[in-house]
Amino acid sequence: MIAWVLLSLFAISSVSAQMPAGKVVDDMSLVQLPDLPLEDPPSEAIAAERTKRLQHALRCPVCQGLSVADSPADAARAMGDRIEELVEEGYTEEQITEYFVDRYGAWVELEPPTEDHKALFIAPIALLLIALGAFAVWNRRRPTSTTSESAIPTIELDPDLKPWRERILSELEGEAS
């Protein structure tokens, strides 16, 4: 018991300093589901489609990078069922996504929201365009020594075939002799 108290005192003094005492988020109520769904309960077909979309878009919390739909884990099944319930109760996809992000954190979305992470989507396209532009500029600046090669006639047959055609002919000659 004495040890307990001593330990307690030590622990309080060391840890309480690090604790943000009154860290309370303004919109605390968000954690509870909104009282009324924004829409009427959807039809069965729409609900099934929404459920599937959400189950593929949300991440199984106990797996590595698998969606709720793909994961065979029990926890993912429970989450998948919960998604289905919420959809059937009439919550919108945004509300349901927010419900899970509030609880698990931003990583529960398998793809981050596009508007907050534009670079992720634009950078590859930008790179492709820059590379194209760079090549065009570089090619234009190169000295254009017009060699005889540029006057290659149009092809009826792939020029790749020429060498083997010649080889076939030479082989035929070999066979004949």
């Binding site: 931003a106 398998l110 793809e111």
Partner: peptide, 22 residues
């Protein structure tokens, strides 16, 4: 896509996923 979650976490300390849909 592979390093982006790490980049995001180093810069903003928020964990995100970049997974199959992306």
């Amino acid at each position: 896509g592979t390093v982006y979650p790490l980049l995001n976490e180093v810069l903003t300390d928020v964990q995100i996923s970049v997974g199959e849909p992306y």
